[in-house]
Every structure is written in C-alpha cells, then in structure tokens.
C-alpha cells in the first residue's frame, strides 16, 4: 500500500458517506462497480458463519432499484444520517485493496430526535484504476443485531 492508495481509499470513504448524509442517494450506486456487491449484516451472523443479509445486493442495478423503491414506493418518516468514519486499515492484495473502516451513524428524524442508530465496520474490496476508486464489495457489519424501527437509507 502506498500513500496514493491510502488517500484514494480515504477520499472514496469520505465522498461515499457525504453522498448519503446529503441525501444524494441517486449517486450512491455509482460508488460501486457494475457487478459490485453490497451486504448489510450483523456481527452475530458473521460469527456464526450465516450468510443472511439485512440488505444484500449483487449488482449496481440492484442498488439503483433500492434507491428507486425508497424514492417511489417505500413509506417511512423523513430522516437523515450523519456518518462518522474511522481511519481505514488498508491492505493491498493482488491488485485490489482491502479496507476496514469503523463507522458510527446518527439518525436524525424530522421531529428532531437524534439517536445513535448504527455502529460497526465496513469491510471493503476496492478497485483503483486510472479513472478512480470504486467498491467491488462492501460488507457492512453491524455491531448490534437490533435495528430500531427500520433501515431505509443505506449505511
């Protein structure tokens, strides 16, 4: 891992979280490669070796569908997130980068209620080429098995 790679991963993380927190969700799928995978699961499932996801997508198209559903079909009270990310630990393995980043997400409801909604870590596989960095795989491992009310906006 070199300093350019480190900066590229940190920049990707920052822009990713910012897009979600600023409600630019239509841009969210483009942080992934076209066959990118996105899995939200719990530390408990991971520890037991169980494959179930709370959200499980295997292509950018599935991510676009999720945003379309959020915008057009699903019903939930207005809310937004604030991500706080840790410093990623990065390893370069055969041309791809693996990054592990802690996160905390506060949820701010339209009523003003602000709660610590989720904590955990991202385990990412990142492709870095001439055009920029993208997630080939992003696994969101939640520390808790409990989600309060619902998980609409992606983490």
């Amino acid at each position: 891992m070199n300093i350019e790679q480190k900066l590229a991963v940190e920049d990707l993380n920052t822009r990713y979280a910012e897009a979600i927190d600023e409600d630019r969700l239509e841009a969210w799928p483009d942080f992934f490669s076209s066959d990118g995978r996105y899995l939200v699961t719990t530390a408990e499932n991971v520890a037991q070796g169980l494959p179930l996801g709370i959200i499980s997508a295997t292509s950018r198209a599935m991510l676009r569908d999720r945003i379309k559903a959020l915008r057009q079909a699903n019903v939930y009270e207005a809310q937004r997130y604030r991500h706080v990310l840790g410093t990623p630990r990065i390893e370069a393995v055969n041309g791809t980068l693996r990054a592990r980043t802690s996160f905390m997400v506060a949820r701010i409801m339209h009523t003003g209620e602000t709660t610590l909604f989720a904590t955990g870590c991202y385990e990412d596989r990142i492709i870095l080429d001439g055009t920029g960095a993208q997630f080939a795989e992003k696994t969101v491992i939640l520390d808790s098995r409990v989600i309060d009310t619902l998980l609409a906006i992606p983490l």
């Binding site: 709370i54 499980s56 939930y76 009270e77 009310t149 619902l150």
Partner: peptide, 23 residues
C-alpha cells in the same frame, strides 16, 4: 432465498413499513 431476503426484515422492500406503521 438470500436474494429474496431483501423483501423482508427492517430493510425489507415489503416489510419495512410495518415497524413504522404500528408506531
């Protein structure tokens, strides 16, 4: 089964509303 699990649970396309509606 794993793909259709996107339909259910707290982030489920067809079940996320239940938690909110009862509230």
């Amino acid at each position: 089964r794993l793909r259709q699990a996107n339909l259910i649970g707290p982030a489920g396309f067809i079940s996320m509303e239940d938690g909110a509606a009862t509230g």
